[in-house]
Design a protein around this nucleic acid. Structure first.
Lengths: 164, 164
DNA sequence: TTATATGCAAAGGCTTTGCAAATGT
DNA sequence: ACATTTGCAAAGCCTTTGCATATAA
């Protein structure tokens, strides 16, 4: 079974379980969302669907994205101010976090097993049952550094403001 | 010099440097913002100021919060969907990250020097110049666990959706 | 005096919602 | 047949902005 087939099945099962319907729109949205291989927002997905000449309303896109997140087929992030970003959920695949370049807005994925473990240690120290986490490192990528972007310039563009 | 005096001075210097004015409103907003010892949003600060019978418009609160962030007197976070949270900046104090309880919404601060160092390692691996970062661990606090809140229930309430 | 700030209300950007018509089961 | 969905436009929410008036320097 290909990954897409698995995702389609997962969505079907999810909908059936809840007595919801598998509509054309929902299927088209799932397939397009899962095909994008970077982060996207609702508006972008809506445009992609239109350019595929699918006539789906923005409201339906929003409603379906929420379902896909509930079905664990998409993850959400809030890197950019003002709107939610989505990405295909990584089933079985290792969890990853993000490095975000303040110069060019590119997003890179990283995974550090040591950090993952240390988070468990922190949770234990606080008597917390860890459910999930988000971890973003903001900075300047190599390319932008070479193009002369400095940390100071970048700091001004960071949407996060926290003393390090 | 008390902490508040330092903050007042920092704000004054910041404004002077930029040729901006130290108005009554700005001073009142600074003093109230810095006095709250948890995270707050613009609306909450606005209400606090009103209850102090200060007549300050919401627009001025937003405008001044932006200045306070620029002056490094406040940090911003985006734990909650839909609005920005502010907190007094930790000058000199160690940087901290957050544990957020999905049961009761309380926010706890943690600091892990090991994680801080590992982030540098990650940044280096990607040829990144790290500017800052955010790191939130979502879970169920001890108190909520004892009151029967399970990870599953909590997952449904998480505003972050990322496979671990 | 004069550039900057304030307050108000209106506008913005993203997302959600109410409702009649359409559709999956 | 019937409950669920869709599309549309309107409304919601947080935040920003334009403009006339007020105020700090």
């Amino acid at each position: 079974m290909t990954r897409l087939e698995e995702e389609r099945k997962r969505f079907q099962d999810f909908l059936r379980e809840r007595g919801l319907k598998l509509t054309q729109q929902r299927l088209q949205i799932l397939e397009r969302a899962v095909e994008v291989d970077e982060h996207f927002n609702a508006e972008e997905l809506f445009e992609l669907l239109r350019s595929d000449s699918h006539r789906i309303s923005k409201a339906t896109v929003y409603r379906t994205l929420a379902l896909l997140v509930e079905a664990d087929l998409l993850d959400t992030h809030d890197f950019e101010r003002g709107h939610t970003l989505y990405e295909r959920a990584a089933h079985g695949t290792a969890h990853h976090d993000h490095l975000i370049c303040l110069g060019c807005d590119r997003v890179f994925e990283f995974h550090s097993e040591e950090i993952e473990l240390l988070q468990e240690v922190v949770a234990k120290r606080f008597d917390f049952l860890m459910v999930n986490h988000t971890h973003q490192i903001y900075g300047v990528c190599g390319r932008c550094q070479r193009q002369g972007v400095t940390a100071e310039q970048a700091t001004g563009r960071s949407r996060v403001r926290s003393s390090l």
